[in-house]
Design a protein around this nucleic acid. Structure first.
Length: 497
RNA sequence: UCCUCGGUAGCUCAGUGGCAGAGCAGUUGACUGUUAAUCAAUUGGUCGUAGGUUCGAAUCCUACCCGGGGAGCCA
């Protein structure tokens, strides 16, 4: 058995492929089978005269997603997808598929999500999963190469640690258990044993968020490093992100092409230094005249784009009347795209004044809202690291600076509107200070006793962060929604399949 | 929880008070280079659900259900 990925090594040889029908065309005594085998796509050409009667019968009975074995000679051919095609000498049908619901036409999100188990076979989904795999591999490579030990934090936890987010509650032998929203506190314990560790696993949030950036179950990578301060923490995170992007650019070129991802914006992420600024500096940018001007310019260019699109729509609508069938279909598709874009522009135009207001009147001490993040990131094309946050809006375990007002936290915002992909900090390592924080936050000290022990027995400065895997995949693939970055996404209102 | 848009054939949609429609998919047939093949014929309907208004409702009104996008919260 040969895989499609390796066809280039078998030109003019007879090989056997095993896979599925991706698309099917027939033309009298010729049958064209676009075949996929999990490693790629290729076209198989079956000519009636070249095969047995039985094989011909099999070939003509094929339908989309039928499973089959094909034997034939590999030929280079420009006309064929992938540059090679198979001149078939034998076809063995494994199973003739029933009518496959996902046709080569467009479909709505709800339908595709209901058929997620089948949608995974489609090109774009296939490519996204390959990129996800590459990212996972690159992360392990990066940390293992630096002598980090991968360790696992528990998924069942006995208490709702930070208190802020809503957690999933489960019955644990008549006791309450919560699904972990982070493994960080456990990560700190493990770092005190091994120095450098990282966790890689699922986390859960029961927030009723219905946006393109949220899942109820998502994968998080959380390194935790003994004797690391905030600066070292940032350097590590930047190096890690660069290593991930570099690996994807080097090894998943074809997948990025399928996803129509502009690689040049990713190349900049590898070559250029990330932006770094304090929360206070970021607030100054938000409130600046330049930002207000930028938003005005943005509104103006949106209005211009809308006018251009409307002109185009008018023009092709006139053409449609006398157009041939395929052109008509093309026009209909374009009209759909235009109206979707116009809807988006209209929403932007409604939002921009609010964004402007929110940025201009931003008060030091508040957390950034979604629009503030967007406005901020419009000005950068590499990730931005924001540090030194008002302590009140950050978690109790973050160490504070000399002023006691600022938390030594760092958030990394991805460019192109993909939002926060990393959140981290230097941790509070002083026992008494940490006890005070727990009291201030009105948390139950008893459940944190084990955590406080880490400060009683050889406390050291240490830092760590969490990277959201799905948001990273979404960003690198240029996807508009995290639901396409994991095989079976779990989100509000979606538990099946 | 709130704001906003939507639910019509297997799929994507048109239809805004007067006979339930198109393209694709399916089925049957034609075609030796197709690329979402093409061409001809053809099957397919609980118009989200329940009430109401009307001579007449997919269309108007009310409530509810489901989904998309967003806010809050976050990775």
């Amino acid at each position: 058995m040969t895989y499609i990925k390796h066809l280039k090594d078998h030109v003019d040889q007879e090989i056997t492929l095993k896979g599925w029908v991706y698309n099917y065309r027939s033309s009298g005594s010729l049958v064209f089978v676009e075949m996929r085998d999990g490693t790629g796509l290729t076209q198989c050409v079956v000519a009636k005269d070249d095969v047995s009667e039985e094989a011909w019968e099999g070939a003509t009975s094929l339908k989309q997603e039928s499973s089959l074995e094909v034997t034939g000679k590999v030929k280079e051919d420009e006309r064929s997808i992938g540059g090679y095609e198979i001149h078939v000498s034998d076809v063995k049908v494994v199973q003739i598929a029933e009518n496959y619901p996902i046709t080569p036409k467009e479909h709505g999100v709800e339908f595709l999500m209901n058929n997620r188990h089948l949608w995974l076979r489609s090109q774009r989904q296939w490519a996204a999963m390959r990129v996800r795999n590459e990212i996972i591999y690159a992360i392990h490579n990066f940390f293992q190469g630096r002598d980090f030990v991968q360790m696992d934090s528990p998924i069942f936890t006995g208490n709702a640690a930070e208190g802020s987010t809503t957690l999933f509650e489960t019955d644990y032998f008549e006791d309450k258990a919560y699904l972990a929203q982070t493994g960080q506190l456990y990560g700190e314990a493990m770092a005190m044993a091994h120095g450098l560790i990282y966790t890689f696993g699922p986390t859960f949030r029961a927030e009723k968020s219905k946006t393109r950036r949220h899942l109820t179950e998502f994968w998080m990578i959380e390194p935790e490093m003994a004797y690391y301060d905030l600066e070292m923490n940032m350097d590590l995170a930047e190096d890690m992100i660069k290593a991930i992007v570099k690996a994807v650019l080097e090894n998943r070129q074809k997948e990025l092409e399928i996803l129509e991802r502009d690689a040049s914006v990713l190349e900049k992420v590898v070559s250029d230094s990330f932006e770094r600024m304090t929360y206070t500096e970021a607030v100054d940018i938000l409130k600046s005249d330049e930002t207000a001007q930028m938003l005005d310019d943005m509104a103006e260019s949106r209005r211009q784009e809308k006018m251009d699109l409307e002109k185009e729509e008018e023009k092709i609508k006139k053409e449609r009347g006398s157009a041939k069938k395929w052109r008509k279909a093309q026009i209909d598709q374009r009209i759909k795209d235009i109206s979707a874009r116009v809807d988006q522009i209209e929403e932007d135009l409604r939002n921009i004044p609010t964004w402007k207001e929110s940025a201009r009147n931003f008060e030091w001490g508040n957390d950034f809202g979604g629009s503030d993040e967007t406005v901020l990131m419009k000005q950068f094309d590499v990730p931005l690291i924001v540090t030194h946050w008002p302590a009140e809006i950050k978690a109790f375990y973050m160490k504070r600076d000399e002023t006691d007002k600022l938390a030594l936290g760092m958030d990394i915002l991805a460019p192109e509107g993909y939002g926060e992909i990393v959140g981290g900090s230097q941790r509070e390592d002083d026992l008494e200070t940490l006890k005070e924080r727990i009291e201030e936050e009105e948390l139950d000290q008893e459940v944190f006793e084990w955590y406080l022990d880490l400060r009683r027995f050889g406390s050291v400065p240490h830092s760590g962060y969490g990277l959201g895997l799905e948001r990273t995949v979404s960003w690198l693939c240029g996807l508009s929604h995290v639901r396409e970055t994991v095989p079976f996404p779990r989100m509000m209102g979606r538990l099946h399949p």
